[in-house]
C-alpha cells in the first residue's frame, strides 16, 4: 500500500506564512508548482524537518515525524530522505567520491533495484569521481547532488529544481533516467520545478502553491487541460535572475500566447498571481528571458542561444 503524506500546520515568518492542510498519496510522484516565493522550497524544508518553527503535524505512512509541540519527533537524519537542494549543497573540501561515500555509509537501506555504478554512468559522473567539488560547474554539482540523494536509498525523494543548471539536452536525458530509476526503485518523489516538461515526465500528481497555500491539487493531466495545450506548456518561461547592469532582475513564469519568429516578437502573459511583478516591468525595459522548459517550438529566430533570449518589453 502506498504511503500517504499528511501535513497540517503552519510556519510563520515575518513576511511569509506557509499554511498547509495536505493529504497526498505517494503511490504516484508529486510535482510542486507555484510562482517564486509561493513556498515550494519551504514546503520541502518542512517535510525534511529543517524548519524548527513549523507548528503542526507531519505523518508519513505509519510514522509521525512531527506533531504539535514536538517538531523533531523524528529528526531529519532518521526520516530516510534523499534531498536535492536548489543550490546542490555538496560537502566542501571533499571529492565527488567522498561525497558519495558519505551518503552510502549512512544509507537508509541497503537493497536497491538500481546499482550505484549505473547512476554514476547515467549522470555522466564517472570522470569526476576524483575531482574536488569546489572545481565543478553548476550543472555538474547538481548531477552529483542528484546521485548522492539516490545513494541514500531513501524512502522519500525531495528534489528542488535539481536540473536547472544543466543545458536542455542534458535535462531531457537526466529526466528520462531519473524517471526510470524512481520507477524501478519504487521511491515516491516530490519534485519542485518550473519546467513543465520535467513535471509531466516525472510526476503524475501536481500541487499548486500560491502565497504559502495549496491552491490546487490533482492529476497532472488535469493541470495540462487547465493551463492550456501541451504546446503552451512547453513554451512556459522563467525570467532569468542572472541579471547584468543592462538587464532587469525579474523571475517569473509567463505563458507564451503568440509568437512571430519572422519579426522576433513573442507575446507573454503573466498569471493573476504574478501581476504585482508585471507592474514592475515598464515598456522599453530590456529583459533577459530564460526558457526552463522545452523551447524548441518557439522558432529559431527567437533563440540566439538554445534556451535563452533577450528583448525589450513592449
Amino acid at each position: 500500500m502506498s504511503p500517504c503524506l499528511v501535513i497540517e500546520g503552519r510556519l510563520t515568518r515575518p513576511r511569509f506564512t506557509l499554511d498547509l492542510a495536505l493529504d497526498v498519496n505517494l503511490g504516484h510522484s508529486v510535482g510542486v508548482m507555484g510562482a517564486t516565493g509561493a513556498g515550494k522550497t519551504t514546503l520541502l524544508r518542512v517535510i525534511a524537518g529543517l524548519e524548527p518553527h513549523f507548528a503542526g503535524r507531519i505523518q508519513f505512512g505509519e510514522e509521525t515525524w512531527s506533531q504539535a509541540g514536538q517538531t523533531d519527533l523524528v529528526p531529519t537524519h532518521r526520516r530516510g530522505l534523499g534531498v536535492v537542494f536548489q543550490d546542490s549543497r555538496l560537502l566542501p573540501g571533499r571529492t565527488v567520491q567522498e561525497n558519495f561515500d558519505f551518503a552510502i555509509k549512512r544509507a537508509h537501506r541497503r537493497a536497491s533495484a538500481v546499482a550505484n555504478d549505473s547512476i554514476i554512468t547515467g549522470l555522466h559522473l564517472e570522470h569526476l569521481l576524483a575531482a574536488r567539488v569546489e572545481g565543478l560547474s553548476g550543472g555538474e554539482r547538481q548531477r552529483v547532488a542528484v546521485a548522492r540523494a539516490l545513494f541514500t536509498r531513501p524512502q522519500l525523494l525531495l528534489m528542488d529544481e535539481p536540473l536547472s543548471a544543466n543545458d536542455m539536452a542534458q535535462r531531457r536525458q537526466m529526466t528520462e533516467r531519473l524517471s526510470e530509476w524512481v520507477a524501478a526503485d519504487g521511491v515516491p518523489l516530490i519534485y519542485v520545478s518550473h519546467a513543465h516538461d520535467e513535471l509531466l515526465q516525472l510526476t503524475s500528481q501536481v500541487l499548486i502553491l500560491d502565497h504559502g497555500r495549496v491552491t490546487g491539487q490533482g492529476e497532472i493531466d488535469a493541470l495540462r487541460d487547465a493551463v492550456g495545450s501541451a504546446e503552451q506548456l512547453s513554451a512556459d518561461y522563467s525570467m532569468s535572475n542572472r541579471a547584468t547592469e543592462s538587464r532587469r532582475v525579474v523571475r517569473s513564469r509567463p505563458v507564451v500566447l503568440a509568437k512571430d519568429p519572422e519579426r522576433g516578437i513573442a507575446t507573454l502573459q503573466w498569471r493573476e498571481s504574478e501581476k504585482s511583478l508585471l507592474q514592475s516591468i515598464s515598456s522599453g525595459d530590456t529583459l533577459a528571458v530564460e526558457a526552463v522548459a522545452d523551447s524548441s517550438r518557439l522558432g529559431a529566430s527567437l533563440q540566439p542561444e538554445p534556451d535563452e533570449y533577450e528583448g525589450q518589453a513592449d
Binding site: L81, F85, L90, L91, T152
Partner: peptide, 13 residues
C-alpha cells in the same frame, strides 16, 4: 548551516 543541513538529510546525526 546549509552544509550541516545537507549532512542531516544524508543521515548524519
Amino acid at each position: 548551516a546549509a552544509t550541516l543541513e545537507a549532512a542531516a538529510t544524508l543521515g548524519a546525526s
